[in-house]
Computed example of a mutant assay.
Amino acid sequence: MTLWKFYKDEISKGLGLEYIELREKFESLIVVFYKKELLEWYLSKPSSQAFLGGLGYEGHMTLEEKLQLLRERFSCSCPDEVGIFLGYPIEDIQGFIKNEGKNSLMCRYWKVYANPDRAQELFETYDKAKASIARSIISNTTLSAPDINYRPN
Rank of each mutant, 00 (worst) to 15 (best):
V82S: 11
I30A: 06
S77P: 04
W41S: 14
F85S: 01
E10W: 12
L39Y: 12
K111Y: 00
S44N: 15
L22M: 11
D92I: 00
M1E: 08
Q94V: 14
M106A: 15
L143T: 05
I11F: 09
N153C: 09
E91D: 09
Q68D: 13
L86M: 11
I137G: 07
V32Y: 08
K45T: 14
R118K: 14
P79N: 09
F6H: 15
S28G: 12
T142C: 06
V31R: 08
D92V: 01
N115T: 07
A119M: 04
N140G: 13
E10A: 12
L67Y: 02
L69G: 05
A145V: 01
E72K: 11
E65W: 03
L69I: 08
Y88G: 00
W110Q: 08
Y7W: 06
S144W: 05
L70I: 02
S12L: 06
G83A: 06
K130A: 10
L22F: 04
E27N: 15
P152G: 12
V82W: 01
G59T: 09
E121D: 07
D147Y: 00
I138Y: 05
E65G: 04
T141G: 12
E100C: 02
S12W: 03
K66S: 02
D147R: 07
T142P: 01
T142N: 13
P146C: 05
S12I: 05
Y42W: 15
L67A: 01
R151Y: 06
S139N: 03
L52N: 07
T2Y: 03
I97T: 04
D127T: 10
D117R: 12
P116D: 03
A131V: 07
L105F: 00
E24H: 10
F6T: 14
E81R: 02
S132M: 12
K13P: 00
N103K: 11
F85C: 04
M61S: 10
E18Y: 08
A114T: 10
S139C: 04
P116Y: 07
P46V: 08
A134M: 10
K66C: 05
Y57R: 02
E65H: 01
E10D: 14
L38H: 09
Y150I: 03
G59N: 14
I148F: 00
W110H: 04
I137A: 06
E124L: 13
I97P: 02
D80S: 11
E81A: 05
E21W: 05
T2C: 01
R108P: 07
K45A: 13
K25D: 09
D80H: 14
I11P: 02
D127S: 08
G56F: 02
R135L: 14
E10K: 15
T125H: 13
P89L: 12
Q49P: 04
T141F: 02
L22V: 06
